[in-house]
């Protein structure tokens, strides 16, 4: 698993925790503002990560003994 997918999961989990804590009504206004700021950053981060990967469908081919990638089209 690469670091970045772990980042995404952790960010989403953290965001959920922040929201739950904010909704618990147990935070002071100051803490709520801090949570809100952190949460807003995580929202941006997570949405960004969903779109940072570009679609690429490739297959491995052997060229001169080395493996390379080339676009793969499925026959429909």
């Amino acid at each position: 698993m690469t670091e970045k997918t772990v980042d995404f999961e952790k960010s989403l989990e953290r965001l959920e925790t922040l929201v739950r804590e904010m909704e618990s009504g147990e935070l002071s206004l100051e803490q709520m503002i801090k949570h809100f700021e952190e949460g807003s950053k995580l929202v941006t981060l997570c949405s960004g990560k969903l779109n940072e990967v570009e679609q690429k469908i490739e297959k491995l081919v052997k060229k001169g003994g080395a493996l390379t990638e080339e676009p793969f089209e499925t026959e429909q």
């Binding site: 989403l12 965001l15 922040l18 929201v19 904010m22 909704e23 949460g39 807003s40 929202v43 949405s47």
Partner: peptide, 17 residues
Amino acid sequence: ELESQITRLAARLGGSL
């Protein structure tokens, strides 16, 4: 679904404040 999950969380975040 992931997108709407994030959107929902963002809304709850703003809403609670």
